[in-house]
């Protein structure tokens, strides 16, 4: 009966993962390997294709002033294009934070935690979750963006000016190793919940109920990995080890963003991302 409860939890979290996250790993892998019936993604590999591909970028959240005017074809410098692309990226990230928040709220027991602790768990967990989810969209040559409509090459991201060029490379390195574990979407749902329910985030008021919730999800993840990957030795331990790398990645990411804020006078950070990154590490 206890294992039946854990299976039910795994099913529930997988269902809410499918409900809140628009691009699953299964779908992303199909697009990346060219196995979808739809059209192939638009490839951005240089400044010219970036300018052309902007029309495909899903930017529901962009303020009107950010949209290209009818005079958009007047000479634009590469740095303007880079900056505008970064803005769009940010708005998609803020939308992704909202998706992760809805997913967190669907974890049984999460909304009963102290509201301040819910905020702390999200503040510290959300970038880790987004990095893990981005790994699903990456291969060694590039990554899908805009809900899978665009493939942006790794070389192009590396060619941007400093410090933009340094933003994604560590995530690619992480993703290539993480993807070797071959987790599927149902495993990912549980792993993301484990990350969110970390009882050691700074400033938590009431750690015990968080640890209790995490313990149940950890047992579920362990059982799930044994059943889903019977031949993969020590997979549970390997997955948990990734949590250490993630913290370092987030730390480096936040420092890069802080550097950007100093060097790019025209850059304004989305208010939600500001809230999350302020005094994070």
């Amino acid at each position: 009966p206890e294992s039946a409860d854990l299976r039910a939890l795994a099913k529930h979290l997988y269902e809410s993962y499918l409900k809140y996250f628009p691009l699953t790993k299964a779908k992303a892998r199909a697009i990346l390997s060219g196995k979808t019936s739809g059209s192939a993604p638009f490839v951005i590999h240089d400044m010219k294709s970036l300018t052309e591909g902007e029309q495909f970028i899903n930017c529901r959240q962009m303020p009107v002033m950010e949209q290209r005017s009818e005079f958009g074809h007047v000479q634009e410098s590469a740095s303007e294009v880079e900056l505008r692309f970064f803005h769009r990226w940010q708005y998609r990230s803020a939308e992704a934070v909202r998706e992760v928040t809805e997913f967190a709220k669907s974890i049984p027991g999460f909304v009963s935690l102290d509201l301040n602790d819910q905020v702390t768990l999200l503040k510290y967990g959300v970038i880790e979750v987004l990095i893990i989810m981005t790994a699903s969209l990456m291969n060694k040559d590039g990554m899908l963006i805009s809900y899978g409509q665009i493939f942006m090459t790794r070389e192009f991201l590396k060619s941007l000016r400093k410090p933009f060029c340094e933003m994604m490379e560590p995530k690619f390195e992480f993703a290539i190793k993480f993807n070797m574990l071959e987790l599927d979407d149902s495993d990912m749902a549980l792993f993301l919940a484990v990350i969110i329910l970390s009882g050691d985030r700074p400033g938590l008021l009431n750690v015990k109920p968080i640890e209790d919730l995490q313990e149940t999800v950890l047992q579920t993840l362990e059982l799930q990995l044994k059943m889903n990957h019977p031949d993969s030795l020590q997979l549970f331990a390997k997955v948990l080890q990734k949590m250490t790398d993630l913290r370092q990645l987030v730390n480096d990411h936040v420092h890069l963003i802080q550097l950007l804020k100093k060097t790019e006078v025209d850059m304004c950070l989305h208010p939600l991302l500001q809230e999350i990154m302020k005094d994070l590490y």
Partner: peptide
Amino acid sequence: KEKHKILHRLLQNSTSPVDL
């Protein structure tokens, strides 16, 4: 609480889309 206004709002509003 003021420091994390939007996060609070995202957590407290149920499924309705939040103006980010």
